[in-house]
Design a protein around this nucleic acid. Sequence first.
DNA 1: CAGGTGACTGTTG
DNA 2: ACAACAGCCACCT
Length: 112
Amino acid sequence: MEKNEDFFQNVFAVARLIPKGRVTNYGAIAKYLGAARSSRMVGWAMNAAHSQKKKVPAHRVVNRIGMLTGKHHFETPFLMQELLEKEGVKVENDKIVNFKKHFWDPMAELAL
DNA sequence: CAGGTGACTGTTG
DNA sequence: ACAACAGCCACCT
C-alpha cells in the first residue's frame, strides 16, 4: 500500500542527505534502497520531488556519467547547473567536471 | 488490457 | 575509445 510512496520518500530522504558540493547517480540510490535494477524508478521519483513539500536537491542527482540529464525537468534547464556551480561543482557541456571526485556514495557514507 | 515512454545501467559490437 | 542493443520496472495513453 504505502510501499510505493515509501520508496519515493526514501529516495527523497537520501537525496537530502547528499552533502553540499557532492553528487550521486540514480543507480547508487537505487542500490541503497535495494532496487538496483530500478534506477529508472529513482528518476521517476525525482520527478515527484518537485511536488514534495520539502525541497529535494535533485540537482545533486545525475546519471552515471555525471551528465545533467534531468535538467529539463527543473523549473529552468539552467537552474540545475547554476545550483551545482554555486555549490562548488563545476559543470561543462551539461556534464560534471571531475564527477568521480564529487561522487557521493550512500552505500559507503550511510551504510555501516 | 496492451503498447509505449523514461531524470538509467551494463554488456556487446 | 565510442556506438548501439537489451534489460529493467513504474506510470501514462
